[in-house]
Design a protein around this nucleic acid. Structure first.
Lengths: 197, 197
DNA sequence: TGCTTAAACGAACGGTCGTGCTAAATATGG
DNA sequence: CCATATTTAGCACGACCGTTCGTTTAAGCA
């Protein structure tokens, strides 16, 4: 059993790379088998269907996200400092080289928005979790007095998500070296509006 | 020649619908032929390659965008009023039923960001034009005194683009009936920060 | 070591993909 | 109405797709 899980991990790492660049639909069992040195049927046996592979790729990405963004971000003290830290790590995540195509949740959000099914359902859960991270951080910042008492944390998370999406476009489509600056300008404005008077 | 152009228009309309929902890569000559009642090769002859079809779909979408968003929006007087009008029409465009999958430029931005080639190049031009519409409108609002004199119009366009992307997610992925309210909250904050003191 | 179970393989399946090629059909201008 | 140019159809191609099946290899445990 251990051997199988280890192989599965290798496959998922390759699949995540591929999916981030080519999309979840762009995943190909054959290409993936070639990349990992497995046979097509051998690789396929690990998942049973392409859909299941796609779901596991998303789950895997969520696990990575938890480690690289959430765990890393919440080392900062509650309040605006933690929000900023989470944002830094979120942008790093979207810019990471280990996931060459950027945040797979973003590309998948636009790829699967009109394709009902279990993969889309899984994606929705993950993206809501992602939003929840920032909603929660905003709530804590309200409790600590950093943020206004009448702030809407969900709206705050929406705004943060928005600039992150635009960051992806600025960075990957426009290949703008100043993308990080652009997005921080936006974030500073969002933070300023969220702060207590 | 007239007959051919008319057929091509029919094809492009169907292709735009399909591409908005399934992505530009999800376009299929065979499926498109079935939908339009043409033969695969007959349809194919109009474009010569799938890439060319994709590019023409983007061009067609840009034409529609100009009519439905730009032409409609600039009937409002220069300044904040025009910015708001353009935004209304932009959101309508992203929510349109005639393009069932929403704004094809958004989905394509996340689909093609890592796929070099002429289609991506065409997309970049179109998205920059789109940004340019809002940059220009912001500039005019600065001239008219509605917006601050030290506003960065490109930054303003970036912010607007950001919330539009998030609108797409909120509407299509989350199917949130309150998406429009969410995005207007964001827009009001952006406008407030842009206004002259 | 021998047995059992898991893991990987190889070949084949029916489909669909984009793309050529050659004819037939149809529209257009004189 | 005819000649010409344009538009569409038909057929075939090689490639790749996800998936199934039976077999073989390899690992884990007694």
């Amino acid at each position: 059993m251990r051997k199988g899980d280890q192989t599965r991990d290798t496959i998922l790492a390759a699949a995540l790379s591929s999916a981030s660049a080519l999309g979840l639909e762009g995943l190909s069992i054959g290409k993936l088998a070639r990349e990992t040195g497995l046979s097509k049927s051998g690789l396929f046996a690990h998942f049973g269907s392409k859909e299941e592979l796609q779901i596991q790729v998303l789950d895997r990405a969520a696990e990575l996200f938890t480690n690289r963004v959430v765990r890393a971000g919440i080392t900062a003290p509650r309040g605006e400092a933690r929000v900023r830290s989470l944002l830094e790590h979120y942008l790093d995540w979207a810019d990471s080289r280990t996931i060459p195509g950027g945040c797979v949740f973003m590309s998948a959000s636009f790829e699967l928005d009109d394709r009902p099914g279990p993969v889309r359902d899984a994606l929705i859960d993950h993206v809501k979790d992602l939003r929840g991270v920032f909603r929660k951080a905003a709530s804590l910042a309200m409790e600590s007095g950093d943020f206004r008492a009448d702030l809407d944390p969900s709206q705050f998370a929406f705004d943060v998500h928005a600039v992150a999406l635009a960051y992806h476009v600025q960075l990957r489509l426009f290949e703008d070296p100043g993308a990080r600056q652009r997005v921080w300008n936006s974030i500073e404005r969002i933070l300023a509006a969220a702060r207590a008077a």
